[in-house]
Amino acid sequence: MALTRDNWPDRAAVQASLAARFMLPPLPAPVQDWFAWCRRMGTQSLVLKEPGWREDSEGVLTGSGAVDVPSLMAEMEGYRFILNQKASTPEHLVWSDAVDAGQWQAHWVVLQNADGDPLIGDISQPEVPVLWDWHGSGRWSPQPLFPNLQMLMERIEVHAPPSLPSDDSPTVFRTVHLTDLGSEPLRVLTALKSHPHYRHLAGASLLKLKHQLPLKLLDDSVSLALKDDLVHRFEALGARVEVTERIHRRADGNAQHLAPSD
């Protein structure tokens, strides 16, 4: 039976399949520290703001975060491990290894990503230097970011929206909904995998989102940059998004909530 939207493998199936098919080189001690750190962070939204890394974006991390070796291997799906959809069945997933094609290094592991741009750990070094690269360029040529993995853990912060201003200036809260997937729905659904709200979904669960429109991409956020980034990203894929605004204004010490505007 071929893979379809109704029987697409979930993350657990991907992890089990990769663990049965591949082995990673010995992992340095800092990677175990990374597993423990990811467990502590849980499902919190995380952000990395670092000069020289994705300077035109907010740096919100969109990966799941690896807590053990199987989940670390699953983080490399689409980077090192490529699923052959046509040759796979629900009971037997067929993978190719980008290392064999010279397109990936065996000592690279994907630690996290931001909208598909990977943070890569070099496990050939005991301190695990951290590299990064843009995705979609056709080849991987990662650049150094941190000299060790510990520094990455120190620089990542929990992502929280700014607090309300203390003066009387109005604050605009923005909500963004994905209302139509456009003419290439699979591309849009794939892009949703990098969104914090939907990154835990895979296979059939992800495909079912097409029947659950509208989908919330941003909820009552004061970030204009994040709103603009979401609108640009999904409209570039041919999708349709809707933006509503709620204005919070303090007058005579009281908060006023104005009607949403498009």
Rank of each mutant, 00 (worst) to 15 (best):
188 V>K: 00
67 V>P: 01
73 M>S: 10
11 R>C: 00
115 D>V: 05
88 S>E: 11
85 Q>A: 13
211 H>L: 03
90 P>D: 12
9 P>W: 01
127 E>H: 12
249 R>H: 12
173 F>Q: 13
86 K>Y: 02
68 D>R: 06
252 D>K: 09
162 P>N: 06
152 L>P: 10
121 G>L: 10
224 L>N: 09
39 R>T: 12
64 S>E: 15
77 E>P: 03
219 D>E: 14
74 A>Y: 03
22 F>P: 13
105 Q>T: 03
131 L>K: 02
182 G>W: 14
210 K>P: 03
197 H>Y: 15
19 A>K: 14
111 L>K: 05
60 V>M: 14
1 M>H: 08
196 P>M: 00
149 L>T: 09
211 H>K: 04
157 E>K: 13
42 G>I: 05
71 S>M: 06
53 W>E: 01
229 D>G: 02
141 S>W: 00
74 A>H: 05
11 R>S: 04
186 L>K: 02
40 R>W: 04
63 G>D: 11
192 L>N: 07
66 A>K: 05
66 A>C: 06
110 V>A: 08
199 R>Y: 01
51 P>Y: 11
220 D>H: 12
71 S>Y: 05
138 G>K: 04
71 S>D: 11
75 E>I: 01
52 G>L: 06
236 A>K: 15
119 L>I: 04
190 T>R: 07
158 V>Q: 11
243 V>D: 12
229 D>E: 15
5 R>W: 09
72 L>V: 08
115 D>H: 08
12 A>D: 11
103 Q>C: 07
104 W>N: 03
174 R>F: 04
19 A>V: 06
11 R>V: 06
162 P>G: 09
175 T>C: 08
57 S>I: 02
33 D>P: 03
118 P>T: 09
212 Q>H: 10
110 V>L: 05
226 L>E: 15
24 L>H: 05
115 D>M: 09
145 L>W: 01
2 A>F: 02
127 E>T: 11
250 R>E: 08
250 R>H: 07
182 G>Q: 12
52 G>R: 10
72 L>E: 06
229 D>R: 13
238 G>K: 04
27 L>Y: 05
29 A>H: 14
115 D>T: 06
243 V>P: 14
262 D>H: 07
152 L>H: 08
89 T>H: 07
134 W>H: 14
122 D>V: 09
175 T>Q: 08
71 S>R: 08
96 S>W: 04
126 P>A: 11
119 L>W: 03
